[in-house]
Design a binder for these strands. Structure first.
Lengths: 254, 254
DNA sequence: TCTTGGTGATTGGTATGACGAATCGCCAGC
DNA sequence: GCTGGCGATTCGTCATACCAATCACCAAGA
């Protein structure tokens, strides 16, 4: 049902229960980079200093840095040190990077707005594709997510509502059969949780009102009507956008 | 002008000129995973065996595996070994992963089709956004790329044509001001090269015919007409798609 | 016979120390 | 002042060791 979601976050505890050191270092350095603690273009302290500051072995430090390099945050050159790469090279669709970019409390309005704008681009198209290509299994998954939303609405269960809403969108993405579009699911998964949580907690009623939009999407996909599905998703995102703007979780379109 | 493009590929040679060992191991293991040499869900040989097979130290092997883990290809659990994660978790927008997924000769039709389909989704939208938001600098970059395309057409310079065409599309993406959309530039950069190369080499004339489409996009952006820009890009992609289909570089829409 | 408990082997996680290669900065000599 | 070289710096790689968690196996006891 759920994918493993192996991220630094979830991997932070080794089987035993103690936090894994590499993950700790990764989290710390990753956050320092995205928060600008180490500015773009800046050179990080040399290995020796970081080892002393963090009290870890060189092995551990280097493994963490290898991960940050793979995520596009850092660039290591022999003898020149470790530097922060420009923002456009960061893997913004990585769970870890997205998490680091969100403040511990609240939301990153700039980033959330960008993701919401991207949703408006991808999700209607994904719906249209899903209406054409989804197999029975995938449609069932979408329907189950919708039904879970209905139950959550009845029970006033915020957590379940968020989860079901996310599942609904992820199921549609998965039904496009396009692996490139599916790559976007990380952003959906990582951020819709935040956005919806902020919105739903403020006003569960808006979640209920949005149920009808979801149902339209579902039915259009079931009936193999791509253009209706596209339009329904567009309407839904518009509805959501207005809510998010009202709560200042995202900023209005420029 | 050009971004550093630090990938395993380019990092394969350390400053000296000798290939870096970690990168070699990374390339080898990465390709084994995406080619299915190590199947999804399968457990890789234990560290000791890989060390012996590849004749590298444990440090080197583990740093390579750390990178593959960050790219979503592998998952390491203490005492359980290293396993290949399901395909939908792979970072398809990473240069390295995309490269591994393309055969050494020719193109991966499935993947190329998916990327082309994704382009049709986000590039028209990117054009519309660029028409609204691009600043003078960004518009200049787009125009310069267009002019480079014209020169390449005059000179029958295939390499320059490919590069300029890529630049044109990347410049538009960069002008959206949306970092999430920009994240797809990796896919564009890594794959348009392949696609265009295959197409242009076969028939430079189609590249020339496509110039007018590019000009329409450029002018619409300069004149701040988002809907015209969107439509122009849609037309351009349709034109390209027909070519690619003819050459069986991608498969027809389902 | 089945369960329970221990015990050693396996496997990844971390720490250390060492050496190499490339490069930078400084200083001496021309 | 310029040039050449030498030492120091810094990352890349290697070898080894120990730890913790877990698994497979076996033996003792109910």
């Amino acid at each position: 049902m759920e994918k493993p979601n192996i991220t630094a976050q979830s991997a932070m505890r080794a089987a035993g229960g103690r936090p894994a050191k590499v993950s700790e270092v990764l989290e710390l350095l990753g956050r320092r980079v995205v928060t600008g603690d180490y500015a773009v273009g800046e050179t990080l302290p040399v290995e020796k200093e970081l080892i002393e500051e963090l009290s870890v072995s060189r092995t551990t430090l280097r493994e963490a840095i290898k991960t940050l390099t793979a995520l596009g945050l850092l660039e290591v050159r022999t003898r020149h040190g470790t530097r922060v790469r420009p923002r456009q090279d960061w893997s913004l669709l990585s769970r870890d990077v997205l998490r680091w970019m969100q403040p511990v409390e609240g939301v990153n309005v700039e980033l959330s707005s960008a993701i919401d704008e991207a949703r408006e681009v991808f999700e209607p198209a994904a719906c249209a594709l899903a209406a054409v290509r989804a197999d029975r299994r995938e449609i069932t998954r979408i329907r189950l997510a919708y039904e879970a939303m209905e139950r959550a609405a009845e029970n006033d269960d915020v957590e379940a509502a968020i989860q079901a809403d996310k599942d609904f969108h992820l199921a549609i993405l998965a039904a496009t059969g396009n692996p490139i579009l599916e790559a976007f699911d990380t952003a959906i998964d990582a951020v819709l949780g935040l956005l919806f949580k902020a919105a739903i907690e403020r006003h569960m009623e808006s979640f209920r009102k949005n149920l009808a939009n979801h149902l339209r999407v579902l039915e259009a996909i079931e009936q193999r009507r791509p253009e209706e599905a596209r339009q329904a998703m567009l309407d839904m995102i518009g509805f959501t956008r207005r809510n998010l703007e009202n709560y200042q979780i995202i900023k209005p379109i420029s």
